[in-house]
Amino acid sequence: MSENQTLSSPHLLGIRGLSREDIDLIHATATEFKDVLNRPIKKVPSLRDFTVANLFFENSTRTRLSFELAEKRLSADVVNFSAAGSSVKKGETLVDTVNNILAMKVDMVVMRHPHPGAHQFLASKIDVPIVNAGDGTHEHPTQALLDTFSLRESLGQDLTGKNIAIVGDIQHSRVALSNLLALQRLGANVRVCGPETLVPRHLRELGVEVSHDLDETVQWADALNMLRIQMERQGPDDSVRFFPSLREYTMRFGLTMERLEQASRPLTIMHPGPINRGVEITSEVADSEHAIILDQVENGVAVRMAVLYLLAQRRG
């Protein structure tokens, strides 16, 4: 690893603001943190004089836990905030909420927010580093960084020319956009595959292939990133609005062992979680040796440690 590098941006708002060198630096740093996480004592004192606020204006389990663990493994002090039961419900604005928290001497903000661009807006108002932990259906940069980190472990460090397909609900997925941007930065060929109603029309303009045929995509791909069907964004009362029925979705876009076995070579299977077993992916596939789903979760902590470490250092 070359010495004394730093990120080009003071915030992590999205993959869009990162260069190839930034992604390589984050991945190289994450490799060292992964080593830390496999030691008898899984903690380093790098951020011991540092306080991080986790502001979750939208629900999260895995991302929030992963960030909190990453912060604690770096010895940072952590405060957590969720919108439910807070003064946000009393009509406080985002900037007021955050400024009140910063007045208590917080050094960094990790935020999830339902509105796309909320982080960009906030970055123009406050002067501490902001990490985007998901903004609506827009971006989820740390997920893309950990997905590409896991892919490089599985397929080799050089992803140039590798065929990666993102399958499922592209329309409602922040993981999809961040992933395809990150994969393109790393030189991979990206394809999205899903029902016509769940693939945004403008997507081809970003230079990705669009397919509506999973069987053909399985033949093409080196790796599949299976996205979750987001029931909560479909419509009220558990109804599905973007396809006739869950059963039909599973028939056409569910990843089964039978489908996988048609591939001419072994595929790497990813899923950002939480899994709807039996909908977008069968249990047999999710638990198979080709699935790196739990590696993704493990790598998530190391990658987030790298992001926090590099952003904290940039201030220093």
Partner: peptide, 16 residues
């Protein structure tokens, strides 16, 4: 990761 000049060092510190 154990250095005491993490945030005061003139240049960023890259791990080995």
């Amino acid at each position: 990761f154990f250095r005491d000049d993490f945030r005061t060092h003139a240049k960023p510190l890259s791990p080995n």
